[in-house]
Amino acid sequence: MAETSNKSPIDSDMIRCVGLTKTYPRASGNVRSLRGVDLAVRPGEFITIRGPSGCGKTTLLLMLGGMLHPTSGQVRVSGQEVYALDARRRAQLRAASIGFVFQMFHLLPYLSVLENVILASTEPDATVSRDRSRTLLKQLGLSGREDHKPSELSAGERQRTAIARALVNRPKLVLADEPTGNLDPENAGEVFRYLSEFHHSGGTVLVVSHGSMAESFSDRVIHMREGNIVPDPGSDTPNTEAQGG
């Protein structure tokens, strides 16, 4: 029997943003980083956003993650209007539903690998949180590295730690900003393989990436230029609408 839902198509999207703009005032004049971006992402999609430096990819990603107020437009994540929430509830949404992976890893240098993962955990039971973190680290090939400091890890290991941290709360969405920017091809492949595993388990992934490797893991590639989503070179229309997950 088919499953029925009262949700509108908009509510059933993992991400939907409409008319997103971002303008930075500068002494030399306003800089328009985003110029009215519309985007829909279905749950379970793996999307790569590509484009030249300064085209607004990171700005878009930070807005989707509730980290950067748009100048205008709306962002809905899991049916919630992100910027209609107050700061506390937006922080709760981030903690519970969104995992971040950054190019520079942003691991706290004074915490061990395990502690860096636990830091992100919202699980109130410390033992459960620790066990979950250990399991994730094991899955990511970091067994035996739990007590090491980030400075004692290779770049690939640091990024895998960051992925474990992003996944510790079982988020619905992972936003990754150039996650392989500092990695060699072998480690980059490893990172995408782990993100792909998350995707295959039902998670939604949005990756901002310069490299072509991400595309081979993606359901859809979105191209950006000068603050807009543009058609990819082999197509006439921008690839902004959600596809089946």
Partner: peptide
Amino acid sequence: RSEIGLLRALGHGS
């Protein structure tokens, strides 16, 4: 600074 940004990203409040 980056630590503070990260904590924000992880959902830690003011």
